[in-house]
Design a protein around this nucleic acid. Sequence first.
DNA 1: CCAAGAAATGAATGGTGGTTCAATCCTTGG
DNA 2: CCAAGGATTGAACCACCATTCATTTCTTGG
Lengths: 192, 192
Amino acid sequence: MRARLTASRERIIDAALGVLAEHGYAGCSVAAVAARAGVATGSVYRHFPTKADLFAEVFRTASQREIDAVTRAAAAAEGTAAARIQAVIETFAGRALRSPRLAYALLAEPVDPAVEAQRLVFRRAHATLLAGYIAEGVAGGELPPQNPELTSTAVVGALAEAMVGPLAAGVAGPETIGGLVTVIHRALGVPS
Amino acid sequence: MRARLTASRERIIDAALGVLAEHGYAGCSVAAVAARAGVATGSVYRHFPTKADLFAEVFRTASQREIDAVTRAAAAAEGTAAARIQAVIETFAGRALRSPRLAYALLAEPVDPAVEAQRLVFRRAHATLLAGYIAEGVAGGELPPQNPELTSTAVVGALAEAMVGPLAAGVAGPETIGGLVTVIHRALGVPS
DNA sequence: CCAAGAAATGAATGGTGGTTCAATCCTTGG
DNA sequence: CCAAGGATTGAACCACCATTCATTTCTTGG
């Protein structure tokens, strides 16, 4: 049945996500994913032409979930650029702190070049979202003139580094989020 | 002769750096490095117990060079935190823009976990340097109170992302550096 | 000039893990 | 109930390097 096919495809993606979140990309052999999904190694290849294709999709799915959450939070915030950007930071960081292994995998862990491309899309999507709010803030006079592309890229880098950077263990706690909001608001020129 | 040994060790490191800068870590098979160094594959193992050891040293060497340059530039700048940090940004970014492939390899490219550790040291060293100046600035009243560790980590992330991030091609031009200085100065609370 | 030992060589080895495929098992339309 | 077609299986295959080592080529102290 068609449903069976789709279901096992889903199961494989879920399994891959699970292995990713537990053991990182390094632990993601096709055999391990298949075992977790409860299918044979070879069956993975009925659904995905290549390991890289599988993980490109896994990354796409997981990233989309993150981006959706952030986008929703930003949309729900008050209308100022400062409030929307604060929502982005808090959502992004809050979720990353709740699933650090997954955050590391999505943001920084070594992966195939093909999968790396998806990561860029992920980071890019966050930057684009931020750039929009920054541009609005500039247009409305809430923020000083600046290049929204550059600023948003810098903000994404700052967020990622603070979450998974070398200091992650020492720096990333709940109190980090407030600090990040302050620093980033200052960086954008949000009036105190 | 002893000199011969040291010389060929150097040649191997240089060759590895060359392959790294030209073809990235992915192109760095031991055979490729050996060929470029003009030695046999096996000879690499007279100098380094392991490929990871070789590249740990390559990263250490290259990173030290970067850190030295940045440290020197900062020390030569005027005594304000703002000036020193501006020197760090300009030096870091200027060098990265001049050798983008190497910058990508040092900052972001997928590598062995063993080598990854060196990368963390690299980023950490930059953050520590910045944290010192930020702390001085705070202590001297030039900058508002803040957590220098967090701020410096964020700054390193912002710099790295702006240099090698997804938008690198579109964002990173010489004019980027000035923009980064502005954004980061604002982030630190340097009074305009 | 000559061993003797160190250094260099590069083909062979071994392990890893993605990918394939012949055999088997289901599902389903007749 | 029965083929026929597709889905599933998992062991075998293969490519790709890192690493090794028997052999050859220096270097050097006597």
